[in-house]
Nucleic acid binder design. Structure first.
Lengths: 336, 336
DNA sequence: TACTATTTTGTTACCGGTAACATAATAATA
DNA sequence: TATTATTATGTTACCGGTAACAAAATAGTA
């Protein structure tokens, strides 16, 4: 391995001078700079970042901790985050928690040990608080994306759950639906809670009494929903929901599958709508009516906030960026 | 920051003893081990990996360099790679080249500087050879996934382009198609070349003379194909292709879009088939007949090979793993 | 020309670990 | 009990850089 000492010898200067050239310190005579650069080129010297980190206390590494890169919503967050990171000279470490807080804890430990300069996190649960506290204690900056853990404050970039839920529900109400059910994520996630609240509020605002039986908590992963759906379907006709709001793309697809397997037609028998696109290619399957959250921007802006914080360019107060979604009315919702 | 020196002081031992406890060296008295572990817990000590890297010459970091995480094919590769890496104690760095060899060069430089222990690479071009040579010179192990750069040998995990292309083409021939066209990736990519070759060979084997006009090179990205497709469509009736093989998922979708915008029906007027699924959720949009390559496995196995190589457990010769694809006949191909 | 200010380069120590060797403590053996 | 193995711990130097200070070289001024 070629080090600054090799360069120094070759260029007949001290290692410190080489270091200065590498970091283009101003007080270097042009002639020595050229001499050193020549040697660097000839020996194909590449600076050793871990060594540098030892004194500089920074690694130029940031971590992205998400539930699952395979969910297009998170894929887009990842792409946005990576683009911004690269642009600002940081490299991105990826971790998939699978919504599991133990796995999350592992990543948090690894990332602190690796000495990343900061982390962009989609927390797995409110119980992630312990993990977040570890980061906070270590003064490793981090930013929440999509969800927050309110007991441990930090900058965040999230969707506007209130208005997005409202858009979805109002769209259904406008189509004449009243018995609308919400298949939500788990209540220990901030976004699921916000969506539940907004769901209730919107119904009430429209003069519809929310029915707790119509609000189900599942999780944000791919799964079989036959049981839940068939329970709805087995209700007598005037009790049966006519529309479903799924709290994310996977739940939406889960619901669609269960309905199909039960022989229920969408949207003829029941309307379905959800948060986020199951497709990563826009409009490849333009069937589901969705509220498309700006996932790429969430990652991009989140990384921006994070790096500002890393570089001490952020205000002392925590910043909460809330981004609107776009309602894409397509074929899975119909007039009642 | 808490260091082994702090622990040493607290536990009344030398730093070296602390180091030994951390690395659970065998020759440590049980009582001191407990004492030290106690101190580690109390002070919440976390080992500093960059410092360790300085002497150990390893970072436990591996890099994944792919064209675009947003392509579900690469998303699955990434997930497979990350799962294996985590399992073997490595962290994954992500880089998107956008099929651009200058961007690739940037990542290669960064990754060498960061001192990753190895890299999993989907090369952007045959001209990536210069980048791969840099890695080889530095003795940074790397493994090709999906594509190879033959001038710089290394382990590889690729799809079985020959047989996969054959499956696709034969499926079309069995449906009575003869004027089949291939919309391929760029000729400077090994997989595109192999697919072109297999395409020609399969036709000849079936007694069909390959028509060079039916073989188009584009690129593996999302793009507008109206021009290319309308050129095909404008051919007189008995010259007009009746089926399209797209060399990847994006090209498949590009073709579908162009056909739709030109008012051509699929599969009534023309059959369409492609490599890889545009969906990441299996069968979410079960329209396109595809050859589904085992992307997750490619990433998983690729990472396995890479880490074996890193740990000097690999044979001296380069290994070439070739994985078969699964033909999923769906709705976009029909009898002629 | 002598002296001071400024620019350029070098020296030393340290970042947080670990390898290699040295020494102290304990156990085994005669 | 003295001597030798063995086990447990400590010392020193180094990994590849850089910060902080020191010294040398050059420029500016009287």
């Amino acid at each position: 391995m070629v080090t600054i000492y090799d360069i120094a010898k070759k260029a007949n200067v001290s290692p410190m001078t080489v270091s200065r050239v590498i970091n283009n310190s101003p007080s270097i005579k042009e002639s020595t700079r050229l001499k050193v650069e020549e040697a660097i080129r000839e020996l194909e010297y590449i600076p050793n970042k871990p060594a540098r980190s030892l004194t500089s206390k920074e690694t130029k590494l940031v971590s992205l901790v998400i539930p699952d890169i395979s969910n297009p919503f998170f894929t887009n967050i990842a792409r946005g985050a990576e683009d911004k990171a690269l642009q600002l000279g940081y490299q991105l470490l990826l971790g998939n928690t699978d919504e599991n807080k133990e796995k999350e804890a592992m990543y948090i430990d690894m990332l602190m040990s690796t000495g990343v300069d900061g982390a962009l996190i989609v927390p797995a649960s409110d119980d992630s608080a312990a993990n977040m506290k570890k980061l906070a204690k270590r003064r490793t900056p981090f930013v929440y994306v999509d969800r927050t853990v309110d007991s441990v404050p930090a900058d965040s970039v999230t969707g506007d759950n209130l208005n997005t839920t409202r858009q979805l529900v109002q769209h259904l109400i406008e189509l004449g639906h009243e018995r609308i059910c919400l298949i939500n994520g788990p209540g220990y996630l901030s976004n699921a809670r916000e969506r539940a609240q907004a769901f209730r509020d919107t119904l009430i605002l429209s003069g519809i009494q929310p029915n707790p039986a119509y609000m189900i908590e599942t999780h944000f992963k791919q799964d079989n929903l036959d049981e839940i759906i068939s329970k709805f379907i087995s209700l007598q006709h005037d009790e049966r929901p006519t529309a479903i709001v799924a709290a994310n793309n996977f739940i939406g697809v889960n619901a669609l599958r269960a309905l199909r397997s039960l022989g229920i037609r969408v949207p003829e028998d029941i309307s379905v709508t959800c948060f986020d696109d199951p497709d990563i290619i826009p409009d490849y399957n333009p069937f589901l009516t969705i509220a498309k959250q700006p996932a790429y921007d969430m990652g991009y802006i989140g990384m921006q906030l994070l790096i500002e914080r890393i570089q001490n360019e952020a205000p002392a107060t925590t910043r909460r960026i809330v981004l609107p979604a776009e309602l894409k009315v397509r074929a899975s919702t119909a007039r009642r």
